[in-house]
């Protein structure tokens, strides 16, 4: 084989080595893009999840909802229940490693009273607002419940 032919053969070899690598990377990249697209298809916006979890705070008498025997006043917060002890019974993240899931800080706007879940670390992602009534000793008062939501922290 003369020099020209040797050069051509070597050039082709190098070309196919590079092309082979590039094609492999493209195929792998394509698979990753498809997988990522598929994961996005099934993704639930965290706002929806947090909103549904937060429903219990004002609707479930085992959380903060005011009840008179069997009758529950939806959207009414019983101030006697609005404490950390009740919060721990209502929503506890111990089984999921705490910070790896939603944590909440609840604040009544008018009075400034505030409680939070056990692994809340002031890393707010977004906020939910709920218009509520607050049952105090002196009666029912209109207020706004601000729910600060902390999403998963860490990997």
């Amino acid at each position: 084989m003369n020099k020209k032919a040797q050069f051509a053969a070597a050039r082709k070899t190098i070309y196919w080595m590079i092309a082979g690598l590039v094609i492999t990377l493209v195929v792998i990249g394509f698979a990753m893009v498809i997988a990522s697209y598929r994961n996005n298809l099934a993704k639930v916006p965290p706002e929806i999840r947090a909103e549904l979890i937060a429903l219990r705070f004002t609707s479930n008498p085992d959380c903060f909802a005011y009840n008179v025997s069997d009758k529950v006043l939806l959207g009414t917060i019983d101030l006697t229940k609005f404490n950390e002890e009740t919060m721990l019974k209502c929503y506890s993240t111990a089984s999921a490693g705490g910070i790896k899931t939603f944590n909440f800080r609840l604040k009544l706007e008018s009075s400034g009273e505030e409680i939070m879940t056990d692994k809340y670390a002031y890393v707010d992602k977004f906020t939910i607002f709920k218009e509520v009534l607050v049952k105090r000793q002196t009666g029912l008062f209109k207020d706004r419940l601000i729910i600060y939501v902390q999403e998963k922290i860490g990997v």
């Binding site: 598929r38 639930v44 999840r49 549904l52 979890i53 429903l55 219990r56 609707s59 479930n60 008498p61």
Partner: peptide, 29 residues
């Protein structure tokens, strides 16, 4: 392979059932 996979359906079912359970917890009674 990805298109025929049931993975998305399973994930959707699991997520939706989880949200249904959260909503049921909020229902008094």
């Amino acid at each position: 392979a990805y298109g025929e996979s049931d993975q998305v359906t399973k994930i959707n079912a699991a997520e939706e059932l989880r949200m249904m359970i959260d909503t049921l917890v909020a229902v008094p009674g």
